[in-house]
Simulated scan of single mutants.
Amino acid sequence: MKKLNFSGGEPFLKPKYLAELLQYSKTELQLESVSIVSNGSKIERKFLEKYKAYVDILAISCDSFNERTNQKIGRGKGTHVHKITQISQWCQEYGIKFKLNTVVNKYNWEEDMNVHIEHLRPFRWKCFQVLILENENGGNNTLRDAREFVITHNEFQSFIDRHQQHTCIVPEPNNVMMNSYLILDEHLCFLNCTDNDKRPSDSLLHVDIQTALKQAGWDQCAFVKRSGVYAWSKNNNSCGSASSDNRLDW
């Protein structure tokens, strides 16, 4: 294993445990890259200062730079953009790579974010087309119903075209994103999305990695196509694809 990403949920709801996991990943597992995805609301400067040596990448979810739009989406209570700006400054100060994740949806696909991206200067900006998994967030007795956020492929592409000047942008339409991630849940089961669901594999606590991987539904070609391999260590300052870096050849 070369890279591990802590996501959620919100990892910073449990900062003590998160810190232990970060330290273990870098010191015991000696991973090339350890990253976190957060909504930013619970991040404190003192945490980043104390554990900066164990974090290569901090990715913040940012769906809009208009707070009214953020509130429509359900992202924060009007202070999200200010907090993102703070975090980007802390990352620069502590040598952590700052990344943005944006879900392009019904409420933000027409937004022009160019000025803000230029100001924040993330080393990587992931832009996802909002994805509906029928048994996960597609209504019909699911815990969440995200169908109101759906956009067409052309609407997603128009957002990408509007921001294509930024070399850090990484577009992920539905057909690229759906099966290109290896996701482990809290029981150490891979989550298989191939049937519009998140069907768990056998747990790594009970079976070997090869057995679990066969149940994961992971599309290795799609992983490479979406630039899944890149300069992910903070010791490497490049932006975007790592195709020229032989150390990352698999």
Rank of each mutant, 00 (worst) to 15 (best):
A59I: 04
F65H: 05
E49C: 03
A19M: 12
T152F: 03
A231V: 08
A231L: 09
M177A: 11
D202L: 10
K99E: 15
F65N: 07
S180M: 06
V55S: 01
L191Q: 08
I160A: 09
L48V: 06
D249P: 00
V55Y: 00
D195W: 02
W250H: 07
W90E: 09
V176Q: 15
D202K: 14
G95I: 08
E28F: 07
H80Y: 03
Q30L: 08
L58G: 03
Q129V: 01
D63G: 11
Q129F: 01
I132N: 04
L182P: 04
W232M: 10
I84M: 13
R147C: 12
V81K: 14
L18E: 01
K99I: 14
T167I: 11
R247M: 05
F47K: 11
S227A: 13
W250I: 10
P173C: 11
L213P: 03
I151K: 04
E148Q: 14
T211C: 12
V104K: 13
V130L: 13
I96Q: 05
W232K: 05
H166A: 09
F159D: 08
G139V: 10
R124W: 10
V130A: 10
Q157G: 00
E49L: 07
S203C: 09
N235C: 11
I117S: 06
N246G: 03
H116N: 13
I96F: 08
G40I: 03
S33I: 03
N236D: 15
P171F: 03
I169H: 04
S158C: 06
W109V: 06
S227Y: 14
Q164G: 04
S41C: 02
R68V: 15
K16Y: 12
E110F: 07
L204V: 04
K3C: 05
G217A: 05
C91L: 13
W218S: 06
D197Q: 11
E28C: 09
L133Q: 09
Q30G: 07
N174F: 01
Q86G: 01
E20W: 06
H119S: 09
Y94W: 11
F149V: 01
D245Y: 12
Q215Y: 01
N66E: 14
I43E: 03
C189M: 07
F149K: 10
